[in-house]
Design a protein around this nucleic acid. Sequence first.
DNA 1: TCTGGGGTCCTAGGACCC
DNA 2: TCTGGGGTCCTAGGACCC
Length: 369
Amino acid sequence: MGQPLFQIRDLVEQHGVIVKSSNYALYGDISRRVMAVVASEVAESEIYSIDEIFIDLAGMSFNPVAWARNLKARILRETGIPVGIGISKTKTLAKIANKLAKKSTKANGVLVLDDQRWIDIALERTEVGDVWGVGRKYARKLSGMGIVTARYLRDMPDQVARKIMTVDGLKTVRELKGVICIDLDDSPAPRKTICVSRSFGTEITDREVLRDAVFSFVSRACSKLRRQDLVACGLELFILSNRFRTDQPQFSLGCEIDLTPATNDTRLIGAAISKKLDTLWRDGLSVKKAGILLLDLCPPADAPRDLFTASCLCENPLMEALDQLDKRFGKETVTVGRVAHADGLDWFTTSSKRSPCYTTRWSDLKSVR
DNA sequence: TCTGGGGTCCTAGGACCC
DNA sequence: TCTGGGGTCCTAGGACCC
């Protein structure tokens, strides 16, 4: 997991491993299909990530195992996707149940942890670092104290948990005890930031090429922003050196830009960034990674206004037309400014092994004879 | 040669207010 | 010149998640 491909070339060759570049348009669409099936069966749920959903079964009177098996079968039939279902008293315990459901052949994808004896055994078999909310750093710290399993973690005193891992860690410990501390969140708060960043296939040493790249980030970020009906009050631009090259000086340069009045117009944000880029740039830089971060997002009506503008965002027919064209004919059919010069794409991340967008792009549709 | 991208939350400390 | 108590807001850094 997370290992660069070039480090495991022999393994790939030896076992005939199939390699795929990631394809988020495809994953996103398949995810929506799976979530839709789940939503049709339950009243309360929370989509937690592209491949996870929490379901509230409180007050349920039917047999949970039979119900879960049925749901699992239905998702497989309707989407082709195999899923695992873990059921318990809290989200943290349900995540553990889910993990075990996948591992155990007996469970075969569905596991209920309700009996305390079984919970104890499950926690004993779970490494502390596999608990939801315990990352690498905390896992190392806890192991140093002899807390190596989820069971030890559950049994540690509240004050110690709080001291080592702040209130979040305390919540985790209590959730392991079966006390609900992390509620089901069925209406997630709107985004506060939007980030678009890339590592480049080839390092960039030319300011104008970098400008091209940054412009394409702006284009993507603004389109995300408009899709969520938000405006940005500020943004951050950053450029980084290649951290793996010891023969080069390392740098991490960035700047913040105030956007007043708040906007989601690609042209305005592009122009603001372009100006800043000139002050940030120095000849001799070799840029491996760059990105932009849109900050302080809010609905247009909530945006701070300046003295001379009635509203931060009037109707913007041009941007609307742009989004419509993208929607109808594919991403970046029409772009603002200087995006995507014919010869300017060398820098782009390589993804030669991307699977087709079977379900979201007409030209990628599978043909059947 | 090649080394991912996109988010949130908490805390401590400093600046400021009355 | 010295002295106190009670707040808010912002930022950087560090942890976590997928």
